[in-house]
Nucleic acid binder design. Structure first.
Length: 829
RNA sequence: GGGCGGGUGGUGGAACGGUAGACACGCGGGUCUUAGAAGCCCGUGCCGCAAGGUGUGAGGGUUCGAUUCCCUCCCCGCCCACCA
């Protein structure tokens, strides 16, 4: 054993040995644990956020292996997507070449940190053998009616020259490029995720090991709303407007109906006089909406359409307006306005001089009058001036109104969701080609002909970057004749391929299942493997994926179940969302602030073990942490102390297991180490990595001052302690620990051995410090035997020198006794 | 506007309703050294020489006892948002 701790001398050695011995491979038997971290987009370099993300998974994977589980811990590359293509446009290099280099560099960095991945299962989404299965899923889902083509208003990013999902728009700007998003009408492909909204919502209840903030975001995102649909016939036209409302009890207070400016029935509502006005209004609103920034509540504006709607109960005619506060793709795109009981409607009515009528009275207090109302009264109450429904509570009224509507055939109760379908076509090159062909002869309506399964994969053509990746104009693939021109699978005549590619969220929606059979050529997922290995036991990633990826892959799991590929309803049992690693200044690491800390620099300076230990010690996994060079140095010093301890005590390295009959310090050493082992084990089970490390520090601090002993029992106790430290620390600082364990006689890697069990007798305390309080204030402390009874402890406490003065001359009213904790004297005065 | 987190020393953070501040950083002192670095040892919430007092964003409540539970409020972060 060397005297000096030199991470550079030991780390590469162990990294090599682990891979050689195949220690991180799945064995195929025993109880399984599937630990997965969100796979990265392989940008050039790993940053600290990555390091932490994979470390949380790695510590668990390493711990689970020693606990005897059959652990799957794979890694792959989310390699398709916008960044690679944008980079390609910028420097005119083919995305495939860049990706290959980036993957190599990223992987080398991962290896240098000592992550315990099974690299034989590595996958890469830009590999045709991966994305062919995206195409396979597309075709299967099309058969199931879960894929469709729609004309839709899409978010168009002028910078990326592509359609982006609602979820990818932030503050009216493209999440990636920051360009102002404009509204454009285009055909696009969509997945019918809304067919599963209800199920996705219901099953959130099963996600008991997900952070509540994530499940609550998903609930919000799905946005189930229960209410009623109410049909308003249009006066003098063969048309009817259906509105959605959660307040059917306010139906008798309707003073107008509002539709979205681009409502599908608009042409039937307008007349010769209003048509132009409405059209101009709609165009104007669209322009304003595109320029809209966050936190700016737009002025409510509207225009009368010229039509009147007939109230389903009173037969009264109310005007139909078009207004900017109604969105076309939520509910039915039309609402009934009840100004007295909805603030938005109230403001609009005031502005345009529309009637306001109170139909809900508060349960208690003064009655409301329609005249001079200062604001809408949105609380539930009692129905008023509402025909036969007058006097009903809001809640009962809603039920009765719905029932009556249903009877009349003019609506009824209804449920609506905020969640939209997932538009997934992208006008991009670096994505999965959509396996569709357009043939003028067989498919004159351009619905798209599915490429037959046996013709998959439709591979991305190798392109002339300069010609194709210009970043503007028609989709890149449309510029590649040898790709776009093909033959129709039906008639064999000339046809054109779909030029659009898939959203990369498709890739990440099922990759967790591909790791189970990464080379399977028959199916995307081997159902037998899936049955054994799913769900993922622990999934680690950033909370920023709460509503996109984490919802899409739940959806995909339901589809895979339907296809008989998997047998679980949910992909992930426990979700861990890790906090951000900020710069030393507490700000987000970025070039802008010049506070970026590079993992490879840190590994080069302090070694992987010190970097790993710091990242885990800095705080609990889900919390943001600030990078701190001083703290890393502290961790490095700590590892040095561990090394020095092992070195100083090296004479005991040949000792075997303690044989009992402890002499000298042996018992104290054994008690300390077993107690530490107990607590570290508990901490690891509950993901308390920072406190687990602290426990080992305590033990090391306790052992460091002890000089090497000649006493046989003490030597054995010390050898045991060092070996236990190596085990306890091995998930965090695996290289150092392997080295020490080997020096202390281990012939196998720690990853091939079993996590030691602590001796409960040794771990137990044998004396207890009682806190003694008088009226809840700490006045003294006493040492008692663990088995000391209540009476004995109380008597001791009362006589204690520090306590007695506070009790002198006072009547003890009560004595609270908490076993092994404290005694509290409650005295008068 | 709605939802969800969070607020503890100079700093990162610990604390099943039971001794607040484990562990670490920083700082101060000591030891070793010709000197330094690295070790090692001691101290370190705040006020106070001390006795003692005080202290977990603010205020109230429950309790023998509250960082922890309840109510009101303030601040910070994240997510959603003319959603009918």
């Amino acid at each position: 054993m060397q005297e000096r701790y030199d991470p550079k001398a030991i780390e590469p050695k162990w990294q090599q040995r682990w891979q050689q011995e195949g220690l991180f491979k799945l064995k195929g038997n025993g109880e399984k644990r599937y630990v997965l971290e969100m796979f990265p987009y392989p940008s050039g370099k790993m940053h600290m956020g990555h390091v932490r993300n994979y470390l949380i998974g790695d510590v668990l994977a390493r711990y689970f292996r020693t606990k005897g589980y059959d652990v799957l811990h794979p890694m792959g590359w989310d390699a398709l997507g916008l960044p690679a293509e944008n980079a390609a446009i910028k420097d005119q290099r083919h995305p495939a070449d860049r990706t290959r280099e980036n993957v190599a560099q990223f992987k080398a960095e991962m290896l240098s940190v000592g992550y315990s991945y099974d690299w034989e299962r590595e996958i890469n989404t830009s590999d045709p053998e991966y994305y062919r299965w995206n195409q396979w899923f597309f075709l299967k889902m099309r058969e199931l009616g879960l894929v469709y083509r729609r004309m839709s208003r899409v978010n168009w990013c002028p910078g990326c020259a592509t359609v982006i999902a609602n979820e990818q728009v932030k503050d009216g700007a493209c999440e990636r490029s920051g360009d102002q998003v404009v509204v454009k009408r285009m055909p696009e492909w969509a997945f019918k995720i809304t067919a599963y909204s209800e199920q996705l919502l219901q099953q959130i209840d099963q996600l008991t090991e997900w952070p509540e903030r994530i499940t609550s975001m998903q609930r919000n995102w799905i946005g189930k709303s229960e209410g009623a649909e109410i049909v308003f016939k249009i006066d003098g036209a063969d048309a009817a407007l259906t509105v959605f409302t959660t307040r059917a009890d306010t139906l008798f207070g309707v003073s107008y109906v509002v539709v979205a400016p681009d409502h599908s029935l608009m042409s039937k509502l307008v007349n010769a006089k209003t048509a132009e006005q409405v059209k101009a209004f709609a165009a104007d609103q669209e322009k304003k909406a595109a320029a809209q920034k966050k936190d700016e509540e737009p002025e409510k504006e509207g225009v009368f359409t010229g039509a009147y709607a007939i109230h389903p109960f009173t037969g009264q005619k109310v005007p139909v307006w078009a207004a900017n506060f109604v969105v076309s793709d939520y509910g039915t795109g039309a609402v009934m306005s009840v100004p007295a009981h909805d603030q938005r409607d109230f403001e609009f009515a005031k502005k345009y001089g529309l009637p306001i009528k109170v139909v809900i009275q508060p349960k208690e207090g003064d009655k409301l009058a329609s005249q001079g109302l200062a604001a809408a009264s949105t609380e539930d109450g009692v129905m008023f001036d509402s025909g036969d429904f007058t006097g009903l509570s809001s809640e009962e009224g809603r039920r009765k109104v719905c029932a009556a509507l249903k009877q009349k055939g003019l609506g009824g109760s209804a449920v609506t969701f905020r969640q939209r379908d997932w538009g997934f076509s992208r006008q991009r090159y670096w994505g999965t080609p959509i396996p569709i062909v357009y043939c003028e002869k067989c498919d004159p309506n351009h619905e798209g002909i599915s490429v037959p399964l046996e013709q998959l994969p439709v591979t991305l053509p190798r392109i002339d970057v300069a010609k194709v990746l210009t970043g503007r104009g028609e989709p890149p693939l449309a510029k590649v004749p040898e790709f776009i021109n093909t033959t129709c699978p039906k008639c064999g005549g000339p046809a054109r391929r779909e030029a659009e590619t898939m959203d990369t969220f498709v890739d990440s929606s099922w990759y967790f299942a591909r790791f189970l059979s990464p080379k399977d050529a028959k199916l995307p997922v081997d159902p037998a493997e899936a049955k054994r290995m799913l769900p993922v036991d622990v999934y680690v990633g950033g909370p920023e994926h709460a509503v996109m990826h984490l919802l899409y892959f739940r959806f995909w799991t339901l589809v895979m179940k339907q296809l008989g590929l998997v047998s679980v309803d949910e992909p992930v049992k426990k979700l861990v969302t890790q906090g951000i690693v900020n710069g030393p200044d507490g700000r987000k690491m970025s070039k802008r602030w010049g506070n970026v800390v590079s993992p490879s620099d840190i590994v080069a300076r302090f070694g992987a073990d010190a970097a790993r230990t710091f990242v885990m010690f800095a705080g609990p996994p889900e919390k943001d942490i600030d990078w701190s060079d001083e703290q890393v140095e502290g961790c490095s010093r700590f590892l040095g102390r561990v090394w020095r301890l092992a070195y100083a005590q090296r004479d005991c390295a040949s000792e075997g297991v303690p044989a009992g009959g402890e002499t000298g310090n042996a018992l104290a050493i054994r008690k300390a180490s077993h107690k530490a082992l107990m607590r570290v084990t508990e901490d690891l089970e509950r993901l308390g990595f920072n406190t687990a490390i602290a426990r080992v520090m305590e033990l090391v601090n306790f052992l460091t001052p002890m000089a090497p002993s000649a006493d046989k029992a003490e030597k054995a106790a010390m050898a045991e302690a060092v070996r236990l430290i190596a085990f306890m620390l091995s998930p965090f600082a695996p290289h150092l620990c392997e080295e020490i364990a080997a020096d202390y006689g281990a012939t196998q890697s720690l990853q091939a051995r079993s996590w030691p069990a602590f001796d409960p007798v040794l771990a137990a305390e044998d004396s207890v410090t009682y806190a003694v309080q008088v009226n809840g204030k700490l006045r003294g402390q006493i040492q008692c035997a663990v088995e000391a009874g209540e009476a004995e402890v109380k008597a001791m406490a009362e006589k204690d020198g520090a306590v007695a003065p506070h009790l002198a001359g006072k009547a003890i009213k009560r004595v609270v006794f908490v076993p092994k904790r404290l005694v509290n004297f409650v005295v008068a005065g």
